[in-house]
């Protein structure tokens, strides 16, 4: 009898042991519980506060740009600002369409040049090149990402523009094409390295499956590897695009900085960023001109946010298929 009782007590003690750590009790156990609760709460508060802080920064940037920019419309009708191509602030003409068009066209042109080339570079690095070669090229591309944009602009000014002059036989070759080429060279390492990583991360089992069905290397890359790496590649393109839209120095040096609509690839023109940076030092503080430049900065923000949203939506659609 007594033996069986002590045995059952022992069993209870043993089975109760794992529960001790989470049991609410007195003394040390309570301390531990409170301590954990404080740690968890404060960690949570720090995380939430950081997230709120980041959102606040974004919102306040948008707000301050908007608050000053909106003053433009006190003296300029919105239709003139958005649709007129006549930018002549000394004579009270504030038509910003040519800059908006320039920024959109320049970005599109840049992506049209850089995305195909980047994809080929990425496929070459991840699939075709011998290992020693890709191991040598990857760090080189990573270094290119870090080159300051003013250096790219400088090279564009001193090498690319004279080269374009020789090829086309024109007097002036500053313009969208020159800027797009410089920007393409600038974003190419970014897009190709991120795509390269995305393609390299596609599981080998997909490749095996494709080859085992009799696919050639070309078919495997274009039908399996690239579609599987799609979201990573899109991410690379977003980063490249963000860089292209916001790039200022490299563009200023080759785009020509003339406020006229670019109806030719070689016509000197101006985009939102280059116009802001060229004119902001000279404008009176409380003038419509100043407000118009703020509004252009706000537009730039909105355009890049919109493009990111569009790509996010595309990306979600892609994942579903």
């Amino acid at each position: 009898m007594s033996e069986s009782t002590s045995a059952s007590n022992r069993t209870l003690a043993v089975s109760g042991q794992p529960g001790n750590g989470i049991r609410i009790g007195n003394g040390r156990m309570l301390d531990r519980k409170n301590r954990l609760r404080i740690y968890n709460r404060s960690f949570r508060i720090v995380c939430v506060a950081s997230a709120v802080f980041v959102c606040l920064i974004l919102l306040s940037i948008l707000f301050f740009m908007f608050r000053t920019g909106i003053l433009t419309f006190r003296s300029v009708p919105a239709s003139t600002f958005f649709f007129s191509t006549n930018w002549d602030p000394e004579n009270e003409s504030y038509g910003a369409f040519l800059f908006i068009f320039g920024t959109v066209a320049l970005t599109a042109l840049t992506l049209a040049i850089s995305v195909p080339i980047s994809l080929f570079v990425a496929v070459f690095l991840s699939e075709a090149a011998p290992r020693w070669l890709s191991n040598a090229l990857r760090p080189v591309l990573d270094l290119l990402v870090g080159i300051p944009s003013v250096v790219y602009g400088f090279l564009g000014l001193t090498i690319l523009i004279p080269l374009l002059r020789d090829i086309t036989g024109r007097q002036l070759t500053d313009g969208l094409l020159a800027a797009a080429i410089v920007l393409s060279i600038m974003v190419l390492p970014t897009i190709s390295r991120i795509s390269d990583d995305a393609i390299s991360a596609v599981p080998a089992k997909f490749k095996d499956a494709s080859y085992a069905l009799g696919a050639t290397r070309f078919q495997t890359v274009f039908r399996v590897m690239l579609p599987s790496a799609r979201s990573g590649i899109l991410y690379g393109i977003i980063l490249g695009m963000a860089r292209a839209i916001g790039e200022t120095m490299a563009v200023v040096m080759v785009v020509g900085n003339t406020p006229q609509l670019a109806d030719s690839l070689f016509k000197p023109t101006s985009v939102l960023t280059s116009n802001i940076v060229m004119q902001i030092p000279n404008v009176p503080f409380d003038s419509t001109w100043n407000y118009a430049l703020y509004l252009m900065g706000f537009l730039l923000l909105v355009i890049s946010l919109l493009m990111i949203v569009v790509i996010r939506v595309l990306q979600k659609k892609g994942v579903k298929a």
Binding site: P203, K205, F206, D208, A209, S210, A212, L213, V224, P227, S228, A321
Partner: peptide, 13 residues
């Protein structure tokens, strides 16, 4: 034809 150790359908329909 070949069937592998790990099921490896493509991420497609």
């Amino acid at each position: 034809g070949m069937v592998f150790q790990q099921p490896n359908p493509f991420p497609k329909s």
